[in-house]
Amino acid sequence: MTTALTFVAAEGEGFTAPGPGSFELPPVFEIGSLGVTKSMLLIILSAFIVVGLSWYASRKAAVVPGRAQFAGEYLYGFIRNGVARDSIGSEHFMKFVPYLFSLFTFILVNNYYGIVPFLQFPSFSRISYVYGLAALTWLIYNGVGIAKHGFLGYLKLQTIPSGMKGPILVLLIPLEFLSNILVRPATLALRLFANLFAGHLLLILFSLGGAYLILDSGNAWYAPVGVVSFLLGIAVSFLEMLVMFLQAYVFTLLTAMYIGSALADEH
């Protein structure tokens, strides 16, 4: 398909391959000098969706749950037991469950925008939003670590591996500081952003490329390739549904692991 697209573009018909510019959306409306974009509105909408669904699932709590309550409790239990308790430990995990549950559901809703008709834009394919979440997680796990161990004690915990002594520490301490304090939020953000960006870019390519080959290429021989492109787009959409869930889970799991390591007594 890529070869066909390249050949058609070379003939001068003007297919423009999607790229980073495809994610630069124009403002939907402006408030003074501030341009409010689609991604901004989706971020705000997702907060209402998470709060609304949580309220709906818990509004009629009963011993024998209905379908909405059962789904909400299952999801909550998954984060509470499978993420928070396993990663943080049974002593401290409960106080972080609300944040982890909110984080997971918020990321999940924003990810799945990418396959919702008419919305079709995953918010976290814009890295600024991901950096915001990663910065919040960074503040939380460093804050709880400093609160428990003290500032110097926390630095020691994060930079000096247990049992390590001697001149090797001259090399290890800067590396551990860089890895555990400075690099973690960047890698946490980039993992989520890169997967959402690449997946959405593929969906754009398959859909626009298929439409171009069928409708605008001017060559009927390209039409079957365009149909294949659409079919691949559908297949990638199903794959993206899995990736979107996994990235929300991985971001939440790593957040819990970082909190657990900040509260641990040994590095």
Rank of each mutant, 00 (worst) to 15 (best):
P167S: 09
F193E: 02
F15M: 01
M241C: 15
L136F: 12
S128L: 14
S217H: 04
S125K: 06
A10M: 03
V8L: 11
A84H: 10
G12C: 09
G132A: 15
S229W: 05
P122M: 06
S46L: 10
I115M: 10
F197K: 04
S125A: 15
V225F: 13
F7D: 14
K165Q: 13
D86H: 09
F7I: 13
L100H: 08
L182C: 07
S39C: 01
Q120E: 11
W221L: 14
F151G: 04
G132N: 03
T159K: 07
A47I: 15
G32P: 03
S237D: 02
E13W: 09
P20R: 07
T255P: 02
G260N: 05
L41M: 12
K148W: 00
H200C: 01
A47H: 10
P224E: 05
K95E: 14
I140M: 14
L53R: 04
L41N: 07
L182Q: 02
A256E: 02
V51A: 15
Y141M: 08
A134E: 06
H267N: 15
A68Q: 11
G199N: 07
L205M: 08
A71R: 11
A84I: 08
E13Q: 11
V227A: 15
P167L: 10
I88K: 05
P167R: 10
I140L: 15
N180L: 02
Y113P: 02
L172N: 00
P27G: 12
V243E: 04
M1W: 11
L254I: 07
N142Y: 00
V130W: 05
V228R: 01
L108N: 08
G260E: 00
F121P: 05
G143C: 05
S261D: 14
I173N: 04
A62K: 14
I43D: 05
A61D: 14
G209H: 05
G21I: 07
L201P: 02
F121L: 13
F15A: 03
F251A: 06
E266S: 14
V97P: 08
V63T: 12
P65Y: 07
M257P: 00
P174E: 08
P167Y: 08
L188A: 03
A194Q: 10
F104S: 00
L208C: 00
V97G: 04
F177H: 04
T159C: 11
F193H: 15
K165S: 13
F124H: 08
Y129M: 08
N142M: 10
V170G: 01
S54W: 14
N195S: 10
Y131S: 02
G199Y: 04
V109E: 03
E24S: 11
Y74I: 00
V130Q: 13
R85Y: 04
G35A: 07
A61C: 00
Y74V: 05
Q120L: 11
V50F: 03
V144H: 02
S39H: 10
R184S: 12
I146M: 13
S90E: 12
G114C: 03
G66S: 06
N219M: 10
